[in-house]
Amino acid sequence: MSNRPAISEEAIVLRGPLVTRFSDEEFFQFCQDNRDLRVERTSDHEIIFMSPAGSLSSKHNNEVLFQLTLWNKHTRLGEVRESSAAYVLPDKATLSPDASWFSHATWARVPVSERNKFLPVCPEFVVEVKSPSDRTTTLQAKMEQWLNNGAQLGFLLDCETETAWVYRPGRPAEEIRGYDQELSGEAVLPGFRLDMRPLRAE
């Protein structure tokens, strides 16, 4: 399987030597100069502009972050980040999940000089919440890319259809239907359970 990430047909992609030659520092500055845009970068250093999330998607993102942050506040096992955080992955892509968590050990590997930039690590846990402009197949490919780069657990949530997929390394994605239940953080996030009832379709 190629490590090239899937790109949504709705996304705008910048290609060509002008942008693919950007260093990590230049790409970071490009994003700082365009803060109103949702931007990611492929492993080939093509720049992807994505549509903003809709109101309900934003609400669902916030609910996931609230539950994850509350768990982390009690356990103090690591760090939580929201969708404006980006990670420079081993395959050279720069991606931003809707929610992510990484351990203190992972944070300790980030040089102090890099901690206010895009982090050169892969989070152990990621969540992607499907927005109206997203294609499920694109997000599924992105989840596989997270695993290929070192993520240990991932949730893909389609709140409109009340479907979830749980991603674990070396195993097929587990599809779960119905949001009258919880998703376990398993050994990666001990004790964490994502209550999906607040994410039900409206």
Rank of each mutant, 00 (worst) to 15 (best):
G150K: 06
R200D: 01
F66S: 12
K92A: 04
D91M: 11
V19K: 03
N148A: 14
V110N: 07
V13D: 03
Y167R: 08
L119C: 02
N3T: 07
S8R: 08
S100M: 04
E186K: 13
P169W: 07
W146D: 01
P5V: 13
L189W: 01
A11L: 07
L95K: 13
S103Q: 11
H104E: 06
Q152I: 11
E186G: 11
A141I: 11
P111C: 10
L147P: 01
V13G: 07
A173C: 11
G154V: 03
M143F: 05
R115D: 03
R200S: 05
V39G: 07
N3Y: 06
E25D: 14
H74C: 10
R193A: 14
Y87G: 00
Y87C: 00
E162R: 13
M143Y: 03
L139K: 01
T20D: 05
L14Y: 10
A108R: 14
V13N: 08
V121L: 15
S96C: 12
E82W: 06
M1D: 08
K92V: 03
P111H: 06
I176P: 03
L68R: 00
P17D: 08
E128I: 11
L70Y: 02
Q67C: 09
L56Q: 12
N72D: 11
M196C: 15
S43F: 02
S131F: 03
Q145C: 12
E174F: 11
S133R: 10
S83Y: 04
M1A: 06
Y87L: 05
A85M: 14
V188T: 15
S103P: 09
Y179P: 00
L65E: 06
F28S: 13
H74A: 13
A86E: 00
L37S: 10
D44N: 13
S51R: 13
E182R: 15
L95C: 06
C122I: 09
P111A: 09
P169M: 11
D24I: 07
K92N: 06
E40Q: 13
S103M: 12
P120D: 08
A141D: 12
D195I: 13
A6W: 03
L56H: 05
A53M: 11
P132E: 09
A86Q: 04
N62A: 13
P5G: 04
D36Q: 15
G154Q: 03
V112L: 15
A187K: 12
P97Q: 08
D98W: 02
F118D: 00
L156F: 06
